[in-house]
Design a protein around this nucleic acid. Structure first.
Lengths: 571, 571
DNA sequence: TTGTGGGCCCTTGGCCGACAA
DNA sequence: TTGTCGGCCAAGGGCCCACAA
């Protein structure tokens, strides 16, 4: 993977510099769910997640994520630098981050972390279209959705016959592409003709890939691509073995933690499903959310065309993803089930900061009479005093989490590297009194019912809540103790009712939840994208064997919004 | 880099298996200098060299190769498995090796290591041609060198007018390619027409790249490619930071050494100039060779067209490549100068096993009257007794080299990862009495003169030999103490004479040196390969910016053999 | 012996509206 | 509103030899 025009959001380490990558375009390509923390802010780094991404980048099964002696499951770090990159061959976007583990953090960093939660980097003026077979064929041009053309492209001079103009758009590498934009045909439609096929062949686009155009602040046209996630053959790096990669990640982090020295990581937003560098404020906020078995939640997913939609789910288990190697880790420690039958592809393991509990406005902004019990609201620092010490009081266990004991590791002759690392127990145990999931002040589900939004299934909800008391025991696999039959029955019975509630709650809570990003999607139109074999030369048909994109466009029935293309903002 | 049809020379770890890669073809692509050790044999692994390769693979400056606490500069390992690979996108060849560090080794492994030295995997029936601008242009086909076509391709039926046939050749991934082979034109010549341009475009070949055809044992035609080493942009992995990669390599090796457990590495023959996994027998043999300042040697280099030629050089310094981080390492511990002025691109640092001292037959097969002093010849075990114990007696320092002391590493807050690792001293010190370069029984240069081959410069040679006594001090940079002016003068004066000697010595020693591989090259013809800009579409000339191969084909005047193409074996 | 260029044919790229989903 | 097709024209892919290095 070659280097590219890299870009400094901050002065990152130079590595074959060209020109700064347009941040808006980068975010448009990385998708609506990706928000990078601001430089200087505090973040939480999860080695497990990092390992998962490496495994995902190599298209390998996430077999065993090894741990490493003396490396805790999370590191609180200061984000020293952030550089946005794009692969020069594939245009794949990724970010380079320099993190420095910290034991204590200052007020500014905390505030920066807070502010980072509120910014949404998705460009306002953009559209994204999944390419059809006709779009990518050499036979024709690109059919531009009408609304998209009207919103994004410069207006045509309709006195011309036919109306046409030359468009110029720059990609992530600042390379300009020129297209003939014409409005013709019967019925009339917007087309990109001359220049389009060169773009398609140079970028090696196939039907199913997406193209997106944005207009930045200076009204300049930019374009990016987003490739379909087709089943790719396992990727062998040919440079480093998978074992060495994993141990490299962990060793680098462990050293950095021990010395409070910076280390560098790469984050590829589209390679793995989860971010592993989380704003500290977001993480803390999530810690204060009650999670209990059977709890209902919503979670954001990206739609095919760069929109977002929420899926409803239920927490079916709470416990370590890997109780042997990564004890007491918050990484994907929730087992979940999804309401919709089409959700078979969705993950069954999520982390607490990924979900939005249903009806939680109370905890985001507790009523005044609860405040005396908590000196500061960690999620929302004000100007009154030291955020730092407030944190220490609120979360006394944090301080112990960074001491690196130099463990005299035993040696196990004959074990493979992964086996050996797998045997290493994480020596960083949380203090005995600190539960794996922090006990909240109140039970959110119970609150939801008192709030009047929960109706008709009080008994079952209470039952789950009672069982959820077990979670104060660290690392207990409470999910397995559940009565799954009763659970399933309950879900089936109250399914329709819940969906009605969802809509109401979604509308209510999105007004008060600062983390909820506004969704604007229009022009929904459902029709499965066609996929066909790309034409290959007859002479060496087997040799030129380029696997045709399998018609894997799963027609998932969407509740909220689903369309072949989306114009961001009302049309 | 995607996975590929991988191939098991031995049962290697499966990783997206397809079919075994043809070993002959793999070796043809990897070049004439690459010989892989046999599975089960003993090898010496150099972490420094491994790090260098990773740096080279990423086209980065070989800045600082960090070391790692408790990791010695070399590990003696048993080669558990060897799998040949080829990148599915670029056809780049590489090998996956599983190594297990050993403290003691059995007789069989030692013998296997011996046998490995004698096999030469280069296929007998093959030819390699560097592609011209005409070859890669869409305008025409491929002009096949006459001798090559006659030797490799099936004979044409010359009763036809014109004589023509269809050729089928499989590549590294076992994908068949079909070409029309025709003998036409005025004057007559062999051409590949139909099918050729598809091959060129699919493989993305450019003028300067090479294509090679071989005929295996079953007379089947195979073809491979070898890309020109053009100046590539720095490669950013987008997965792992360079720091993490280096520490990953070292940590994996250190763990394996501590536990005698297997670890996996990738070796890319064309990425870095030097092998870092050396047959133990070859290494030991090199240790018994006297090296001294001013010593003359020959060294094999690959020619442009998969041939080999020897260059003459002089040892100008002996000492650690990195005296701070990698003390007493044999990795590239020789500083050398080259006779030819065109040798400016050649490396100035080599390892002892890479060179062939001039006139050393005496040490390869010592005369009988020296044998009583040495119970066993380590390089050539016979059937009389335990090779193992013989080794222990011959090289007592080897045993100490593998003990892993669990060093309580100090922590240096604030240092970067590389800085920290660089500060770590390799705790494995050689015993005080053991010199960095083993003192031989006799001085080879002196021998050469007594042998009658060295004439006319006795004084200078003696002087260098006296100075070379200093090398018994470990890690001393003797090279810097040399009289460089006298050295240069000497070289200039005796240049022509030396060249005459080289030819004689080459002929003499190649007959008795088992490591010398037979060179067979014919049809030498010198003409610089032309390079021209590849045609790009006019519409978006800047966008499609595909850098044209710069005419970097340096016309080095070759002494022995140099040709645009070479037919292996007499024509 | 072989690299390059001109001549010439014909495949394929690419622009158009028709038509239907 | 937009995906795909047939029609049609022109660019360039690709096979040939001439010529020269």
């Amino acid at each position: 993977m070659k280097d590219q025009g890299s870009a400094g959001v901050s002065p990152g380490p130079p590595e074959g510099e060209k020109k700064a990558i347009n941040s808006e375009l980068w975010h448009a390509c990385s998708g609506p769910l990706v928000a990078m923390p601001p430089v200087g802010s505090l973040v939480v780094y999860f080695p497990q997640g990092h390992s998962e991404q490496v495994a995902a980048s190599m298209h390998k099964e996430v077999d065993i994520i090894p741990n490493y002696p003396s490396l805790p499951s999370k590191l609180i770090c200061k984000l020293l630098s952030l550089t946005l990159h794009a692969d020069s061959e594939t245009d794949e976007v990724y970010a380079q981050m320099t993190l420095q583990p910290v034991n204590k953090y200052d007020r500014d960093a905390m505030l920066a972390s807070e502010l980072g939660l509120k910014q949404n980097k998705q460009p306002v003026e953009f559209f994204c279209k999944t390419l059809t077979a006709s779009d990518t064929s050499t036979h024709g041009g690109f059919s531009v959705p009408r609304r998209a053309a009207e919103k994004i492209f410069p207006p045509l001079d309709f006195t011309m016959q036919p109306p046409a103009q030359e468009l110029m758009a720059k990609d992530l590498h600042d390379i300009p592409w020129k297209f003939r934009h014409i409005f013709r045909g019967q019925p009339k439609r917007h087309l990109l003709t001359t220049g389009w096929s060169v773009f398609v062949s140079t970028k090696r686009l196939l039907a199913g890939d997406s193209v997106l155009f944005i207009r930045d602040e200076k009204s300049q046209l930019l374009l990016g691509i987003r490739r379909a996630t087709r089943p790719q053959p396992a990727l062998s790096s040919s440079v480093l073995s998978s074992d060495s990669m994993h141990i490299g990640i962990l060793a680098a982090a462990a050293h950095a933690a021990a010395n409070s020295s910076p280390f560098t990581i790469f984050y590829n937003p589209r390679a793995s499903p989860s971010e592993f560098v989380i704003p500290l404020a977001k993480y803390n906020k999530a810690l204060y959310t009650q999670v209990s078995l059977g709890m209902r939640f919503r979670m954001l997913f990206e739609t095919e065309d760069s929109g977002v939609r929420r899926y409803m789910g239920t927490i079916t288990g709470i416990g370590d993803l890997d109780p042997v190697r990564w004890k007491n880790s918050h990484w994907r420690n929730l087992q979940v089930g999804w309401d919709e039958s089409t959700a078979s592809e969705r993950r069954t393991r999520v982390s607490i900061w990924e979900i939005e509990p249903v009806a939680t406005p109370f905890y985001i902004c507790p009523p005044p009479f609860f405040r005396p019990k908590l000196p500061k609201q960690p999620g929302m620092p004000d100007d009154e005093g030291e955020v730092d010490s407030a944190f220490k009081r609120a979360m006394p266990w944090l301080g112990d989490d960074f001491a690196l004991k130099d463990v005299q590791s035993q040696l196990f002759p004959g074990l493979s590297l992964v086996q050996w690392m797998a045997m290493q127990q994480n020596p960083q145990m949380l203090p005995a009194g600190a539960p794996a999931v922090q006990a909240p002040y109140l039970n959110s589900s119970a609150m939801a019912m008192q709030d009047g939004t929960g109706t008709g299934n009080d008994d079952l909800m209470r039952r789950f809540n009672m069982q959820s008391q077990n979670i104060s025991l660290p690392n207990s696999q409470v999910g397995s103790k559940m009565d799954h039959a009763a659970m399933a029955q309950h879900q089936q019975q109250s399914h329709q009712l819940q969906q009605q509630q969802q809509v109401q709650q979604s509308q209510q809570s999105s007004a008060v939840q600062p983390t909820a990003s506004p969704i604007a999607a229009a022009e929904c139109h459902s029709s499965p994208a066609a996929a066909r074999t790309s034409p290959t030369s007859a002479v060496t048909a087997t040799a030129a064997a380029r696997t045709s994109p399998e018609a894997a466009v799963t027609a998932t029935a969407a509740v909220e919004d689903r369309c072949k293309y989306a114009v961001n903002g009302a049309a």
